[in-house]
């Protein structure tokens, strides 16, 4: 199977499958409740002409809806994280620690920050799994 274009529905499906296949995820995320949206700011020079909205539903170790969506749906998520495409790519490739990115203002988050801190292992786990999806990034296509 070849690389999957980032931020497409196929990519979201592959990400969801990777999480479901992870042997540790279910236990680590057993207390997590709530959806997460990632908003990718446009960067035409890097092949992202429009903002991209991604919606992911996590619930007590299970994963539900994983979709590319519109702005309204993204903003309805319990946690909404926004950042430039280059930052998201760095996070996915584990070149940028998501916590550092948040603290330094490279990513922005709307939602219950203490809840995220409390569940930091879940956050780190899903980022770790994202790195395993064989991805074709827009600026590399």
């Amino acid at each position: 199977m070849g690389k999957i274009k980032a931020m497409t529905q196929e990519w979201m499906d592959a990400y969801k499958a990777a999480i479901e296949a992870d042997p540790e995820y279910k236990e680590i995320a057993k207390n997590w409740e709530g959806s997460v949206a990632l908003i990718v700011n446009p960067d035409p020079d890097k092949g992202v002409p429009e903002p991209v909205y991604l919606f992911m539903d996590y619930w007590h170790g299970d994963v539900g809806e994983f979709v590319v969506c519109d702005k309204a749906k993204a903003e309805s998520a319990k946690f909404v994280m926004t950042g430039d495409y280059a930052r998201w790519k760095q996070v996915a490739l584990k070149e940028l620690d998501s916590t550092k990115a948040l603290l330094q203002g490279k990513l922005k988050m709307k939602g219950d920050l203490p809840y995220v801190v409390r569940n930091i292992k879940v956050v780190n786990k899903v980022i770790d799994i994202l790195g395993r999806v064989d991805t074709l990034w827009p600026d590399e296509a």
């Binding site: 948040l102 603290l103 203002g105 922005k108 988050m109 920050l113 203490p114 801190v117 930091i120 292992k121």
Partner: peptide
């Protein structure tokens, strides 16, 4: 107002670091 660090410190105090630091 724009700082996540400020928000974290306000909500959780300096002990916001405990779990992150442990990891």
């Amino acid at each position: 107002k724009d700082s996540a660090l400020a928000e974290g410190l306000h909500l959780m105090g300096s002990d916001a670091n405990m779990e992150l630091g442990m990891i």
